[in-house]
Design a protein around this nucleic acid. Structure first.
Lengths: 117, 117
DNA sequence: TCCATATTTCCAATAATATGGAAATGTTGT
DNA sequence: ACAACATTTCCATATTATTGGAAATATGGA
């Protein structure tokens, strides 16, 4: 619960949500901090502040690669967050009316044997 | 995007997240403000403040019923929010590693003809 | 109408957060 | 060791959010 508040709080801010979406689009590979700053035109101090918030909250992670710091979205944490939000939803019954256009994260396609492609 | 920041901001707070979860559990029927306050032991002013934040952000809605005000979660808005968070995720490819235990909201079951049951 | 109950508004004190310039830190290549 | 670049830390400032007591408002029933 506290974890969820942290994660939501990290995303509940224009600049950070923009950063997060850049990271989601970038995928597991991630993106160097500087590239993110260029895309969103953010001064280094501001960028660094928000990246550290995202990482502290667990929705993004960073790894060092040479003199770059590569940030990427934490997809597992994001899924956990989404699951938490709708936990106990209507005690298990369908609770429309809206039908989601797609899932949280696409399931890997499977062949007839049930193996991932 | 602004809409998403509002929605996330509404949920990014301990008291409000607790309220929201009570509403999610209550389902579309909703719950009178007072009942929520009892469950979470909140003073009226505080409760009212947070309920109005949730409603303003669109993740909850209210209707009057006699002298009660019934609040309920807005499931459609919640789904939109979740969809937005993972939009353009990995440009369409599966982006594990975690597989979600279940969908955002359960799809209604369909029979062989594709009709809802 | 009058009373009991439900919810909201008003208000002030307190705390937390966002911003970005300047300087510090760390890393690579010469 | 030095220069060039990437990122973070330090700092001050401005803005916004949370809290709850007390009073106001609204509804239903006797």
């Amino acid at each position: 619960m506290n974890q969820a508040v942290e994660a939501l709080g990290a995303l509940a801010q224009g600049t950070r949500l923009a950063i997060f979406r850049v990271l989601v689009e970038a995928g597991p590979e991630g993106l160097a901090a500087g590239r993110i700053g260029e895309k969103l035109d953010l001064p280094p101090a501001t960028l660094s502040f928000h990246l550290s918030q995202l990482a502290r909250a667990g929705v993004a992670k960073s790894r060092s690669e040479g003199r770059f710091v590569i940030y990427s979205a934490d997809f597992a944490a994001t899924n956990d967050l989404v699951a938490f939000l709708t936990e106990n939803c209507c005690k298990g019954a369908y609770c429309g009316p809206a039908l989601p256009p797609h899932g949280i994260v696409k399931m890997p396609e499977r062949n007839a044997r049930g193996r991932r492609r």
